[in-house]
């Protein structure tokens, strides 16, 4: 049995403190779940534990460099040769793209859209840190010091990987497409049918809910980012449809898809800054044209029409 004296002296304040801390934790969770207001606190705490995080990346990095250095010289040469050929191929494609991009921009200007295709891109590497078990997230070695922002799209050479959810000075956390909390606006490349791609928590499995039974969608269709919502730029490959289940008793189709990008391969990814850097601001800009002139701040360009 425990000492009654010690219980007498410690029990009441401890219980009170626990109650306060439990309430504080619940408040933090509620705020963190619904808003972005705690990101500052998160960033500063991250800076505080950064030395520990940095140390914990060392074993993983060591294993990686060891496996890399164990690759044979000949296989590296082969790889190099292959990459050179690939590079040449992409360069030739890229030159064509330049012309196309100029064309599209000219056409868009004709249609009165101010959206730019030009994007800033930054290469980031994965950091070998463990996150919460069973989450579909990765850590990158670029943070707010490189202007990484929350909601930023992340891709690799194959397609969309996910988006940034937390940032700190030197690192950022990315939610992969397959995370159950992830949602990416997509469209079917064949016909422009729009939908929202959601993760399932299972590697390599995505779902496309809320498409009705008469939707024109087939197994093998490529889904690309639709640009809706303003976070993801238009046109990046996201997933291919692998199965469509038509259950007559359900209103919506049960559609399963696989990400185009292999999410668990490769150590390098690309961060994109879409051409129009503040996507939220493009919305009022469009409505400004139809708004009464008195509400618009006077700008020379806008007075002319």
């Amino acid at each position: 049995m425990s000492n009654p004296l010690s219980r007498l002296s410690t029990a009441p304040p401890v219980t009170l403190r626990v109650l306060i801390l439990v309430v504080a934790s619940i408040a933090l969770m509620l705020i963190d779940n619904r808003t972005q207001q705690l990101e500052k606190l998160r960033t500063s705490l991250h800076t505080l534990v950064y030395p520990v995080i940095f140390l914990s990346t060392i074993p993983g990095d060591a294993v990686n460099s060891l496996t890399r250095s164990m690759q044979k010289h000949s296989s590296l040469q082969e790889e190099n040769e292959k990459l050179k050929q690939e590079n040449l191929y992409y360069k030739s494609r890229f030159e064509k793209l330049y012309a196309l991009e100029a064309d599209i921009e000219r056409l868009k200007r004709l249609l009165g859209q101010s959206e730019e295709l030009a994007e800033k891109i930054l290469l980031a590497e994965l950091v070998e840190v463990s996150l919460e078990p069973y989450t579909q997230q990765i850590v990158l070695n670029k943070g707010t010091s490189d202007d990484v922002y929350i909601g930023q799209p992340v891709i690799n050479g194959e397609g969309v990987i996910g988006q940034v959810v937390h940032t700190s000075h030197l690192q950022s956390i990315v939610t992969l497409l397959t995370d159950p909390d992830s949602a990416v606006p997509v469209m079917v490349m064949r016909n422009g049918l729009r939908g929202i791609m959601r993760g399932t928590g299972v590697t390599d499995k995505l779902k496309l809910p809320y498409l009705t039974a008469d939707a024109d969608i087939l197994v093998g269709d490529l889904l690309i980012s639709s640009g809706m919502g303003g976070r993801f730029p238009t046109g990046y490959p996201v997933a291919t449809i692998t199965a469509i289940e038509r259950d007559p008793s359900l209103e919506f189709l049960n559609i399963v898809a696989t990400p185009v990008a292999r999410l668990d391969h490769g150590r390098e990814v690309l961060l994109i800054w879409p051409g129009n850097e503040q996507p939220a601001e493009t919305v009022p800009e469009v409505t400004e044209e139809s708004a009464p002139p008195m509400a618009v701040p006077l700008l020379d360009g806008e007075q002319q029409p």
Binding site: V22, S25, M29, D32, H46, V49
Partner: peptide, 13 residues
């Protein structure tokens, strides 16, 4: 919570 990128307060609770 910060290291794991989980909901702030989850492990704290």
């Amino acid at each position: 919570d910060v290291m794991h990128g989980s909901l702030l307060g989850q492990n704290a609770l």
